[in-house]
């Protein structure tokens, strides 16, 4: 972890601030198994019907499913709909 990030994390801990806001970490909200909402993403790495990979801070979120569709793509958040089977968080080494 870079020095700047360590300081940010410490500040967030001391002041009890949400880490996603201070450190730019992704916030993932799953509604049932059909809707997924990801905030603080960095872009789409793969867009297929069975798999969507979304870039996040220092990693990637992989969503496996069926009939997956990007309902909305805004600069900070993504809304995915479809039958979701698995969600993986892959951290960059």
């Amino acid at each position: 972890m870079a020095k700047v990030e360590k300081v940010k994390k410490k500040i967030a801990d001391i002041f009890d601030l949400p880490h996603d806001t201070v450190l730019g970490l992704p916030r993932v909200t799953l509604i049932g198994s059909h809707q997924l909402y990801i905030e603080n993403h960095t872009g789409i790495n793969l867009y297929e019907k069975n798999q969507i990979r979304v870039g996040v801070h220092k990693g990637e979120i992989q969503i496996d499913g069926e009939d997956l569709q990007l309902r909305t793509v805004y600069s900070d958040d993504i809304f995915i709909e479809g039958k979701i089977f698995n969600i993986f968080l892959k951290e960059q080494v």
Partner: peptide, 15 residues
């Protein structure tokens, strides 16, 4: 999609 996002465009119902 990524280029559009970087440009600040809003997209929905993407297929």
């Amino acid at each position: 999609i990524n280029r559009a996002r970087e440009a600040g465009a809003r997209l929905w119902n993407i297929s």
